[in-house]
């Protein structure tokens, strides 16, 4: 490696350290005793580089204390988060790829206009639609169920539809024609030919959606009212209200880290596809 490239690593390493510092801080505080954690919260100098006596039981203690019944609150929230996230990711990938296929491969009157309208929805902030959406879901009797969180995913997301559409438009026409002569209708071409080819876009859609839904706080807060239906993000907020004081901050950090683990793992596993997908979306677009 040339000397110039070493120098280029300096700002990158500094940036990485800056990004990793909060994570490291959370990890260290989550393993401290209550006194050490409280001190580290008010004074940066009191923070150890590595905990001298890591309190691993903090994690189990934190998870046990979520909700009004021991363990049940945490396990319910975990199950709800997994269910909502799984369904939303699945529905988003299916609906966005299907719409993307239609916009890229089926010629119909008004296709361009429809694509334009769909892109325009990206400029609409979600806060604008929040109240009308709530009224609609309330009139359907869906409040305090997971339906308002997962059903909208069946109607696609403009950004991901755009990515799928751009990617599918690059697939050679002859491949689609061959599939149609081989006996496939549009749905089969989409399912058997296009989806397997769209793996990078599927990966990026799945990862983005997972991270967004797993961390989503506002949606579950609005629609899920019962304690047993709360997701991890909502449960974590209730926990913060309960254990947000300086004397129990290690529990809050432990639970926050537990909540973050799936996102970190997913990113590490899908990192290659993620970067590839981003590149493809950018170049082929």
């Amino acid at each position: 490696m040339s000397r110039g490239r070493y120098w280029a690593l300096v700002p990158l390493a500094f940036g990485a350290l800056l990004m990793l510092f909060p994570l490291w801080w959370m990890l260290v505080v989550s393993l401290e005793t209550p006194a050490q954690a409280g001190a580290a919260t008010v004074e940066v100098g009191a923070l150890e580089l590595l905990p001298s006596e890591p309190q691993w039981h903090n994690y189990a203690d934190a998870a046990r204390e979520v909700g009004s019944v021991e363990w049940q609150g945490f396990l319910d929230a975990l199950a709800n988060s997994i269910l909502v996230t799984f369904l939303t990711v699945l529905f988003t990938v299916l609906s966005c790829s299907l719409v993307g296929y239609a916009l890229a491969r089926i010629r119909f009157r008004g296709r361009g206009a429809l694509f334009g309208v769909m892109l325009a929805t990206m400029m609409l902030p979600p806060q604008v639609t929040m109240i009308p959406m709530f009224l609609v879901f309330r009139s359907l009797g869906w409040v305090d169920t997971i339906l308002p969180l997962v059903v909208p995913a069946l109607f696609g997301n403009a950004f991901f539809i755009f990515m799928f559409r751009q990617f599918m438009a690059q697939v050679p026409e002859s491949l689609v024609e061959a599939a149609r002569l081989d006996g496939c209708g549009h749905l089969e071409v989409w399912w058997r030919v296009m989806l397997p080819l769209c793996r990078p876009v599927i990966a990026i859609t799945a990862v983005f959606t997972f991270i967004f839904v797993w961390n989503d706080f506002l949606g579950p807060l609005i629609y899920l009212h019962s304690e047993r239906k709360a997701t991890l993000a909502v449960a974590l907020n209730s926990f913060r209200n309960q254990f947000g004081g300086l004397e129990d901050v290690q529990y809050l950090m432990a639970l926050s880290l537990i909540t973050m683990i799936p996102c970190i793992l997913l990113f590490l596993v899908a990192q290659r596809q993620f970067v590839e997908g981003l590149g493809k979306g950018a170049v082929k677009g």
Binding site: P172, S174, L175, R180
Partner: peptide
């Protein structure tokens, strides 16, 4: 439709399913 005409076509680009 083409799929019901009982014809098979070989394309210039081969059009093999890469996956």
């Amino acid at each position: 439709p083409g799929r019901d005409r009982d014809v098979a076509m070989v394309f210039q680009s081969y059009a093999l399913y890469p996956h």
